[in-house]
Simulated assay, not measured.
Amino acid sequence: SLGTETYWSANGVSGSSQFAASIQSSLVSEIGRPNRGVKTADFRVIKNTRITAALVECVFVSNPDEANLLKDDGFLNKIANGLFNGISNYARNITPTPGNSIANGNYKATKVLVNIDEPTNSQTIGGNFELKGWAVEQSGINSPEITAVHVYDGPAAGAGNLIGIATYGIARPDVASSFGKSNFTNCGFQLLINCNALSKGTHVIHVYAHNEQLGWDYSTVKVNVVNDGSGTQVTQQTVDTPTQGSTNPVVTNNVSTSEESSTNTNYATSGTKKVLISVDNPKNGQNVSGTFELTGW
């Protein structure tokens, strides 16, 4: 493992989610390590407190490269600066109020925006696929002001149809540029989903994003799940820069079919039999670095 992540407790003191998001954003910007996102956990050191709290994992000492970085005084100074800036940015936008140790004085949430980039609406999928997108609270000051992203098979109904909790806090400079708000830079989310956990047929995936003031809001995408390898398509996607206020991505699809990627569902029972190979991830033309997962069928 490698990179930077920050935890807050949903059962802790109010304001902890925004505190964690502010620190994560500033620290990643300062030290430049991979962004592992803002996460929730009930660690005692952040749950059983009387003040706003966050647990920061700056880097992994179990990773040889990052362990060596910790021997560099210059890198340690960058960590200190990142932590200081994150705490300062948060503190500048809060004021104490009676009965509440910390409360946002200058920030009032207005609307949660959730955008799903991949998969696209009505896309046929099989094997493992990656759900990607971004989520922000449009009036956010210190950060995107999103504390968690949960993914469900249909409307949220508890653990019974929860697909997973997405990694949140991935760099999306395109979104920040579109909104003209640098604090939206780390607003991306992603979740690797195994189609074998879903029944064959049409599913409406619900992606819920949480803001501490407004609660949960969501966006949906309809997909056709094919667990037996039939009916899949090789799709190349280009995603345009999102526009402010938009909750739907602008996506251009170029779909190609061939004998190696057939959409004929009768291929197994008639005609000349073929070997079919489909690469799900990475996408065609996608930039990759470090360790990445190649999946397909």
Rank of each mutant, 00 (worst) to 15 (best):
108 K>R: 15
123 Q>H: 07
111 K>H: 13
151 V>A: 02
97 T>W: 13
140 G>K: 10
123 Q>I: 09
171 A>I: 02
78 K>M: 06
76 L>K: 14
173 P>L: 08
185 T>D: 00
174 D>S: 03
192 L>W: 02
158 G>L: 03
86 G>N: 05
176 A>C: 11
67 A>P: 10
149 V>L: 11
87 I>S: 05
191 L>C: 05
93 N>V: 12
77 N>W: 14
146 I>Q: 03
145 E>H: 13
180 G>R: 14
105 G>H: 08
175 V>R: 01
183 N>R: 13
136 V>Y: 01
151 V>D: 00
91 A>F: 04
96 P>D: 04
154 G>M: 10
151 V>H: 01
129 F>C: 08
83 L>G: 03
178 S>D: 11
90 Y>N: 09
86 G>A: 09
85 N>W: 01
84 F>N: 00
118 E>H: 11
128 N>T: 05
179 F>S: 06
153 D>W: 02
125 I>P: 05
100 N>V: 14
111 K>N: 13
135 A>S: 14
124 T>D: 09
106 N>Q: 14
120 T>Y: 05
150 H>Q: 13
138 Q>R: 12
172 R>C: 10
148 A>Q: 02
82 G>N: 04
158 G>M: 01
172 R>M: 10
144 P>I: 03
161 N>S: 02
167 T>D: 06
166 A>K: 06
147 T>G: 15
99 G>F: 10
